[in-house]
Design a protein around this nucleic acid. Structure first.
Lengths: 163, 163
DNA sequence: TATTGTTATACTCTATAACTATA
DNA sequence: TATAGTTATAGAGTATAACAATA
C-alpha cells in the first residue's frame, strides 16, 4: 500500500471539500427524495423539477412560460419540455395569453388539484423525514449559509402580481 | 445577531424549504463550477463527475471499477460509462486484475498526470472562488450540517489518517 | 449461487441553434 | 429589432435488465 500524502490539509483542502460535500449531499438528498416520493403513491413521472414547476403553476394560478423559466432559473426550452411532459399526463394545459399573442399561459387542469395536493403533502412528509437528523437551529444556519453561497432573490414573484 | 426573518415555526413551510434551498444551491454551485472550469483551459468533457472519478483513480494509483462505484456512490454501469469516456480521451486505461479475473483495474495513462494536475489546481481555484462569500467558521458549520444529513463515511478509502 | 463488468435500452435534465409568430 | 415559444438535436448523468465470465 502506498502512503498517501495527506499534508495538503493546511492550505485548504478541507476548505474546498465542503463544496464536494454540498454537491454530494444534495445529490443524495435529491435521489432519496424522489425514491421515497415514488414509493408513496406519487407517480414516477412527477420528478422533483416537474413537481416544482407544477407547484409554481399551482401557486400562480396562471403563469407565463417565460415567467416560469425565470423563477426556476432554467431556459425557456426546458420549461417547454416540462410543460409537455405534464400536459401529456393531463395535469396542466396551455392557453394563449390574451394580452400578448406571442406568450403562452399555463394552468392546472381540473383533474390536477387532487394529485397536486397529494404530491405536496407527500413531498412535505418526505422532506420532514430527511430533515429529521437536523435540529431546528441547524436548519436556519443552513438556510443562512446557503443564501450566502447563492442568492435566489428572484424566486418569489408570486406576491408581486398586480397587473 | 440578526433575527432571521422566518415567517415562523409551525406547520413547517420554512422548515421544509431548506431542502429545496439545498438542492437549488447545489445545482447552482455545480453549474457554476463546471462553467468556470471549462472557461479555464480544462476541456469540456472533463465534467465534475468525470473529474471526481479521475481524481479518485489518481489518488488510488490502481483501483477496481467496483471500488470506484462504491466510493462514488454510483452504480457499476455508470462507472463503466465514465471510464469509457475517459479512456476515449486517453486519460486512463483498463487492466485485468491479476487477483480476480472477473475484475478490472483502472489507472491513469502516462499522458494523464499533467492534465489531472492542471484540472485539480483549476478545480481548487474555482472552489475557492465559489466559497469566498463564506467565512471559515461557516464552512465548518456547513460541513457539520451536511454530514448529519448524509453520512458519507465510505468516501475516504484514500486516507488512512489515524482517526 | 454470487459477483464483476458489459451491452442494450431508456429516461430526465439541461442546453444551443435555428425557426415562427408576434411585438 | 427583440421577445415568446417551438423543433430539432445533443450530451451528461443515471439507471434497470439481461448476459458472460469468473469466483
Amino acid at each position: 500500500m502506498s502512503n498517501p500524502p495527506l499534508s495538503h490539509n493546511d492550505s485548504g483542502s478541507s476548505d474546498v471539500d465542503v463544496l464536494d460535500a454540498l454537491i454530494r449531499t444534495a445529490h443524495y438528498v435529491k435521489r432519496e427524495f424522489e425514491t421515497r416520493l415514488s414509493s408513496m403513491d406519487i407517480p414516477a413521472y412527477l420528478t422533483g423539477p416537474r413537481l416544482r414547476l407544477l407547484l409554481a403553476v399551482s401557486e400562480a394560478g396562471q403563469i407565463r412560460m417565460s415567467d416560469l423559466a425565470a423563477i426556476m432559473g432554467i431556459k425557456a426550452i426546458t420549461v417547454t419540455q416540462f410543460v409537455d411532459a405534464l400536459e401529456k399526463e393531463h395535469l396542466l394545459v396551455r392557453m394563449p395569453d390574451p394580452k400578448d399573442r406571442r406568450a403562452t399561459l399555463v394552468k392546472l387542469t381540473d383533474a390536477a388539484p387532487p394529485l397536486v395536493e397529494q404530491a405536496r403533502a407527500a413531498a412535505k412528509r418526505v422532506k420532514e423525514k430527511l430533515l429529521e437528523p437536523l435540529p431546528p437551529e441547524m436548519r436556519s444556519q443552513l438556510l443562512d449559509i446557503l443564501s450566502r453561497l447563492a442568492d435566489f432573490k428572484n424566486v418569489c414573484i408570486f406576491e408581486t402580481k398586480e397587473s
